[in-house]
């Protein structure tokens, strides 16, 4: 498949997925029993004013037939109009524009750190003896199983309360970013290490590794030239998933460390049952997932144009 066709297929697939997500959300809103306008404005408990309800009806064209509503809704999405947050009285797009960079930055840094940690540990694991392997194995499993909300608390207790090295809340110096990033990165690193180590071991004991050794390559060069790529490949193909789990984690981490971001906005929107805000963020994170997925697949294609070697 040539590159243009590949990009075309990717974009097409992404649009289909986004369309399906949007449709699912549209259907879900209509499935809530009672007045959709009321649901949009926070449910029956929110005591929305008649004026606000009328505004919502107008905005979502609720007096129109449902098919018309649907296409109007899709049309708005195409112009990046995700509606108006009723709890913040601001367009959803604007709110997201303000908080999104924080979350993306946090997640990207965490992804990077997790990758570095995983690479280092997998490389170290190649030299480990039996006991080392066992301990490493256990540590990975524990790291991968630790929930963010607890890890964050433990890190604060350790580095902030007990040792006083790092602030628990961002004070603008950047040092406040260390703990949130670690909280997000450690579980992912544990998970990635398990993956990378498996494929690294497989690669280093493969026929092509033997052939490379027979050409006179040292173990170290074998690792650099061959091992790394093979270790990175399966982990790379999971980048989309990893990023998605980081976004999940960010909701919790932003709550613990009191950082403004997508997750915090989402949480307060959920508590206020601010449907436009919540659906907007969900749609947007789906978009982010798809973009990250496409990028990681692009990189994968560069490393391995023939597709899955196994």
């Amino acid at each position: 498949m040539n590159t243009i066709a590949w990009v075309g297929r990717k974009v097409g697939g992404a649009l289909v997925v986004l369309w399906l997500v949007a449709s699912a959300i549209f259907i879900a809103i209509r499935l809530i029993p009672g007045d959709p306008a009321e649901a949009i404005m926070g449910g029956p408990g929110s005591q929305a004013s008649a004026q606000a309800l009328a505004a919502a009806r107008a905005e979502y064209a609720l007096d129109q037939p449902i098919i018309t509503q649907y296409f109007l809704y899709l049309g708005k999405l195409l112009t990046f109009d995700f509606g108006t947050s009723y709890s913040l009285k601001q367009p959803v797009t604007q709110v997201m524009g303000e908080v999104l960079p924080n979350t993306l930055w946090l997640s990207l840094m965490a992804l990077l750190i997790a990758w570095l940690l995983a690479l280092c540990f997998s490389a170290l694991a190649m030299r480990a003896g039996r006991i080392g392997t066992f301990v490493g194995n256990l540590l990975e499993i524990i790291a991968a199983a630790v929930p963010h909300f607890w890890l964050g608390a433990v890190l604060i207790m350790l580095f902030s309360s007990a040792l006083g090295w790092l602030p628990a809340v961002d004070n603008g110096t950047g040092r406040g970013l260390v703990l949130p990033i670690l909280t997000l990165a450690l579980p992912l690193a544990g998970f990635l290490t398990q993956l990378m180590r498996d494929s690294l071991t497989e690669a280093m004991s493969s026929q092509f590794a033997l052939a490379a050794r027979a050409r006179g390559e040292s173990r170290l060069k074998l690792f650099w030239r061959h091992g790394l790529r093979h270790a990175a490949l399966p982990a790379l193909s999971l980048t989309g998933w990893a990023f998605s789990s980081l976004l999940s984690g960010a909701v919790v981490v932003e709550a613990i460390f009191a950082r403004p971001g997508l997750g915090r906005s989402l949480l307060s929107a959920v508590l206020a049952r601010d449907i436009p805000m919540v659906t907007g963020i969900a749609l947007f994170s789906a978009l982010v997932y798809i973009v990250v997925m496409a990028i990681s697949e692009g990189i994968e294609r560069m490393i391995n144009p023939a597709g899955d070697p196994r």
Binding site: V17, A24, L247, V251, L266, Y289
Partner: peptide, 18 residues
Amino acid sequence: EALYAIPSLLMALLIIAF
């Protein structure tokens, strides 16, 4: 695939919002 594109916790929050 479409449902998978929404991160799990976000999806859970979306459901709870409803």
